[in-house]
Amino acid sequence: MEVTLNVKRYDPDSSKPAAYYQEYTVEVNDTTILLDSLIQVREQIDETLTLRCSCRAAICGSCAMRVNGHAVLACKTKVMELLPKSGNTITIEPAGNMPVIKDLVVEFNVFWDKVKAVKPWLQPQGPPPQAEYIASNEAMQHLVGVTGCIMCGACVSDCTVLEVDKNFLGPAALAKAYRFVADPRDDADSVRLGELNEYGGIWDCTRCMQCVEVCPKGVDPMGRIMALRDKAMQYGYQNTYGARHATAFTELIKHGGTLDELRLPIKTYGMFNIKQMVKLIPIGIRSQLKGKRPPIFHKAIPGVENVRRIFKKVENKR
């Protein structure tokens, strides 16, 4: 069938650079991959259409872009799956949270700078052994999920915090940090966690789940961030604003079985830390605009007893 690709374009070299939309019509079937359609446009209809892509196999991380408002990997997505309920037009835009260079090509240095900031290399203590480090297969298998990250930036594109706070390290960099903290061979956990405990680090995530939803490789950045929070607490990072955030969080969950995001900031910063509270306002407004705002009145969810029991168990263990 015929499908219209409505592509957001931007050419910085034109005399009056401004973004505009251009429609291309392509023929697709049930299995046509979006990237192949875009390549078809680029090779047969309009050679000036610019995007990054290489592997065509969801492994090089080049081709993240926004389709109908959400980040996808173009080489891993079938066109038919993207069609809205009515009509046959798909809107394609560059990935978000990174400045646009041209058409679908965005400035990725923003992304790499955050990755570099977590000192993403193994930091073992002392010289390496003669042969390999001995590590359990279980521990290595556990890291397979997070090292599967292809640095495509889909999560960064759609992260709700990054939209309002450029300082946030963001899902990909934090997932990368987790990869080292969880590696039995790495001995810098304490220092790493101390740094991640700062402003811009693990406590700034609002747990909106966007990164988990859009990640094409099942990396679960948010889950990694939560695991880092646990670790930070274990390492005794208790007195900073972040850990207080979590203490409040724990209380809230115990209380209602689910997270009351509206109460969380107050607990974290204290009712009268006006400056920090104001900083959070845009996040609230944005979430509301996107329909992601948590319900204002939280009821205890069914099974809250269970949640409380789990907390008790964990607490007793410690």
């Binding site: 990054r52 290489s54 592997c55 492994i59 090089c60 991380g61 080049s62 292809i150 640095m151």
Partner: peptide, 11 residues
């Protein structure tokens, strides 16, 4: 010509 981790060795 591409970011290092985009190189084809990753395949």
């Amino acid at each position: 010509k591409v970011y290092p981790v985009r190189s084809h060795s990753n395949a």
